[in-house]
């Protein structure tokens, strides 16, 4: 690569700093403000130096005792949706990677087509149905819905990763008398660990953050964290910003750390799926 001149370097660096600021400042602002005493949050000019306090977190604990139950709901639903998606996608991805038939091609094309439909429309028939089955406000509904909307992307990712494994490994295991289940679990899965991570990221982040399905299909006991944050945001007696910032920080910290930790898999997953279709 050609080494750019110093002026060009400075310009590039300046642009990168500017872009990073645009990405990170809104987040940093809320996280920092969650540690400010409530009266300083909207101080003008903004206070940069302040004594950090956990006051907002304590008040979140006291005034919204349900918040941490909702975190648990989010945790259960996210774990469930990720497990279901990755399990279904690995098994389907293996078949698509290794076999070809007209029926398989049709079903693969169907997987691509359904990705284009706007998810909100399924709430209309499912809302009455789920009420009738008395399944509203349960974890299972959200687990299945989140899995549905990410299973085709995850299948594509798994297929791309499995295609890279030489067939000879499976054939050798097959000759040694291993059956299909053993081959999948002992030979394939250990070799596509990266693929499993890549396939799980997208559904995991989606399930942790999702808003509209949770809004439609939960009322009380299965409510997820984003819903409670939205409720704190719309409290009638004026927004309690300190509590709101504390809740947002608690919700975003684990998922942000996760996304940054697995960033190279995000790129790998996107190239494996979206670019190639």
């Amino acid at each position: 690569m050609l080494e750019p001149r110093p002026v060009a370097k400075a310009a590039r660096l300046a642009l990168a700093v500017l872009a990073s600021g645009w990405s990170v400042l809104p987040i940093a602002l809320v996280v920092l403000a969650s540690f400010k005493p409530p009266r300083d949050i909207f101080a003008i000019p903004p206070t940069l130096i302040f004594t950090p306090t956990l006051e907002n977190y304590v008040r979140l604990w006291e005034l919204w005792p349900g918040f941490f139950d909702n975190m648990r709901n989010s945790l259960i639903i996210t774990a469930g949706a990720t497990a279901v998606t990755v399990a279904f996608a690995s098994s389907a991805g293996y078949v698509y990677a290794r076999y070809a038939s007209r029926l398989l091609t049709i079903s693969a094309f169907f997987m691509i087509v359904v990705r284009m439909l706007p998810p909100i429309i399924v709430t209309l028939p499912l809302f009455p149905l789920i009420n009738w089955l008395r399944l509203n406000d349960t974890h299972i509904v959200l687990v299945l819905l989140y899995s549905t909307f990410f299973v085709s992307l995850a299948t594509w990712i798994m297929r791309a990763f499995i295609e890279q494994i030489p067939r000879e490994l499976e054939e050798a295991a097959f000759v040694d008398g291993a059956n299909l289940g053993q081959i999948l679990v002992r030979v394939i899965l250990p070799l596509v660990a990266n693929g499993l991570v890549a396939a799980s990221i997208f559904v995991l982040v989606f399930a942790w953050n999702e808003y509209i399905f949770a809004l439609v299909f939960t009322t009380r006991s299965a409510r997820t964290t984003p819903l409670v944050i939205s409720e704190i945001l719309s409290t009638v007696e004026g927004v309690d910003w300190g509590i709101l910032f504390a809740a947002a920080t608690v919700q975003l910290a684990p998922i942000l750390a996760f996304v940054i930790a697995v960033q190279r898999y995000v790129i790998a997953g996107l190239t494996a799926s979206a670019v190639k279709g």
């Binding site: 590039r12 990168a16 872009a19 990170v24 987040i27 944050i229 947002a248 996304v259 960033q263 995000v266």
Partner: peptide, 29 residues
Amino acid sequence: WMPCKKLIIALLIAPYAITEVSAVVMWRT
């Protein structure tokens, strides 16, 4: 050409981890 490429990419993709609910909180603030 870019120094600390990994770090900068990590900063650039940070909003991907944020729920739209918190994004509204941030921009409204």
